[in-house]
Design a protein around this nucleic acid. Structure first.
Length: 575
DNA sequence: GCCGTTTTCGGCCCGACTGTTTTCAGTCG
């Protein structure tokens, strides 16, 4: 079930779509889109804020009118402005807007000239050759539209960051091997470590743009060349991933990198700063009149604008610009800050490695300690451990620690939180462990209230250390379960326990906005691989990316502590 | 529709590529 923020954002986006087709004032349309984007980025629930008596117009992009619409939607579940628009403009037209190569003007023309209201009608008209007859359209546009309709199904697809990396890294290597190519950087949401990316934006410094682009379009995995000029090109790879490449000269590198890293909202906000000073920013630099005053590096650009350097992961216009102005940006955590990993599985439950193999793989990644945390018996599909098997493992870990070199294993469990909030193993067994990770693996569909109460009850257990993958979402597969995360984070602070940021690329859970909340409440986050095989410690880098998006610093993260300090903190969670 | 160190009106981010034009509109990022 989408949150209130998401639901309102969708309504605002739809209003923007329909207004756009109607040819309304573009700035009014932008206001709706900005509001939608800001609502999605907000790490607080608007309903709750309103109940707390906060003034919605205090938020950026929300004025009197939109605040009233938000209240209407919260109160009635409806938005009369949207309903009125829908009566005027067929709502399916919004879907046409999603097709590549077609924007509001063309949708408007298709609707008013040919009475095309949906994808099917568009497809028919294109096949019948009606579209090429319209002014502003031609045979090529018609063919492109037809193709776009047929491919529409997967055009919306986003790629998980880890999956994108598997395609991006070889492509980057290929580009770096090109003649006269000096530097290749993958910018865009990939550089911002967003959990999913819609496409890849690659920036290349080269003396000869055409030559570089030739090299790019001849990459073996390129399926379609969508466009290609002297400074930019767009291709689709065989797996459907779109890649945009831009070539810039060296003097513009920083400005271009900033520009193509985004996010859009961040860039707009930064450009406004320049604009207020009477300057202009584009991908070639920061200009005062015709004179370039910064842009060879990103640092020069920020400095000239009076801002501290903003790390890519923070560039979402969620307060980073204000923080940069006051020099109050966080010093973000790095992969090398991690000293250990508190969540992994072996063959004993559903993992693929032995205790020793997992320990050695973690050690080879530079970790000092690793907690073994199998599933518990309730999760039978994962061969979860009962008390006997768990206690045997505790002994095996103790023995192995005597002979292991360079790493220490901790005994733990990923214990199921049952529907009533009790834990799946008895206290006297949990008492033998170094840590207890509680996890929800069943009954995802409880009401928000029930689900929240269930988790809060589990956290009350004297043995509870850490809440695993707190939202339960699987990216693109399962929505987060309905739960009051603000309350859970607050409770963790009161109770003195921790939250996991599960680094599995399918999860990346805590969400970035909740990392920030945890930090504000002083709740430590543990960035864990949840490795089910020795190779899966690789996942930690994606967890770090997510943590950085959540503004986390080294000190905000539990497993940056030394083993000694960690043991002390684990002990403190015992009530 | 929002916003204000140019504050209640008059602004609002910027450039490349394509296709349809015959100098530019539409779309995209």
């Amino acid at each position: 079930m989408p949150s209130d923020n998401e639901q309102i954002a969708e309504i605002f986006d739809e209003i923007a779509d329909l207004l756009e087709i109607e040819g309304d004032n573009p700035f009014r349309i932008r206001a709706y889109r900005t509001a939608a984007r800001n609502l999605r980025a907000l790490n607080k629930d608007v309903r709750r804020m309103r109940e707390a008596g906060e003034d919605l117009t205090d938020f950026p992009g929300i004025g009197k009118d939109l605040a009233a619409k938000i209240e209407e939607i919260l109160d009635t579940g409806r938005c009369r402005a949207l309903e009125k628009l829908r009566r005027k403009v067929p709502p399916d037209l919004g879907e046409l807007l999603r097709l590549p190569g077609i924007g509001p003007k063309r949708v408007h023309a298709l609707y008013h000239e040919l009475d095309i209201q949906n994808l099917e009608q568009l497809q028919r008209a294109a096949r019948d050759g009606e579209i090429r007859e319209l002014s502003g359209f031609g045979p090529k546009t018609e063919a492109r539209l037809l193709e776009a309709v047929e491919k529409h199904r997967d055009s919306e697809r986003r790629f998980k960051l880890a999956e994108a990396a598997r395609y991006a890294e070889p492509l980057q290597a290929w580009l770096e091997g090109g003649k006269n190519i000096e530097q290749v950087v993958i910018a865009g949401s990939y550089r911002r470590a967003k959990e999913t990316v819609g496409d890849l934006d690659i920036l290349v410094i080269a003396r000869d743009g055409r030559q570089a682009i030739q090299h790019f379009t001849h990459y073996e995995d390129v399926d379609t060349v969508v466009s290609s000029g002297s400074t930019r090109a767009t291709v689709i790879l065989s797996n459907g991933l779109q890649v945009d490449l831009r070539v810039v000269p060296k003097v513009s590198y920083g400005a271009a990198l900033h520009y193509f890293t985004g996010s859009k909202a961040h860039n707009i906000a930064v450009r406004r700063i320049a604009q207020k000073k009477g300057w202009k920013i584009n991908e070639y630099g920061l200009y005062e009149g015709d004179k370039r005053i910064a842009g060879e590096t990103e640092a020069s650009l920020f400095k000239q604008l009076g801002l501290a350097y903003i790390e890519p992961e923070l560039r979402e216009n969620r307060g980073e610009i204000e923080a940069a102005r006051e020099d109050k940006l966080p010093k973000l955590i790095k992969l090398t800050d991690l000293r250990g990993d508190l969540h992994c599985h072996t063959r004993a439950s559903d993992g693929q490695g032995s205790l020793r193999a997992m320990a050695e793989a973690a050690r080879d990644r530079g970790l000092d300690y690793l907690a073994i945390t199998e599933h518990s018996k309730h999760l039978a599909v994962a061969h979860g451990l009962d008390s006997d098997r768990l206690l045997k493992q505790v002994d095996a870990i103790a023995e192995l620690n005597d002979i292991l070199d360079g790493i220490t294993l901790l005994s733990g469990i990923e214990v199921d939180i049952l529907e009533d909030g009790s834990l799946d193993l008895p206290d006297e067994v949990l008492d033998r462990l170094d840590l207890v990770i509680g996890a929800v693996h069943s009954q995802f569909n409880l009401s928000r209230k029930q689900q929240t109460e269930r988790i809060l009850r589990a956290m009350d257990s004297p043995h509870f250390t850490l809440l695993a993958h707190p939202s339960g979402r699987l990216i693109d597969k399962r929505e987060p379960y309905a739960v009051d995360m603000e309350r859970i984070i607050h409770q963790a602070a009161q109770r003195g326990c921790y939250l996991e940021l599960n680094a599995n690329p399918d999860r990346l859970d805590l969400l970035d906005s909740h990392c920030r909340l945890a930090k504000e409440e002083g709740v430590l986050v543990s960035i864990n691989s949840d490795a089910h095989s020795p190779a899966a410690f690789e996942h930690l880098r994606f967890g770090i990316g997510q943590a950085r998006r959540g503004w986390l610093e080294k000190d905000d993260v539990l497993n940056t502590r030394s083993l000694t300090a960690l043991r002390k903190l684990l002990k403190q969670t015992r009530q």
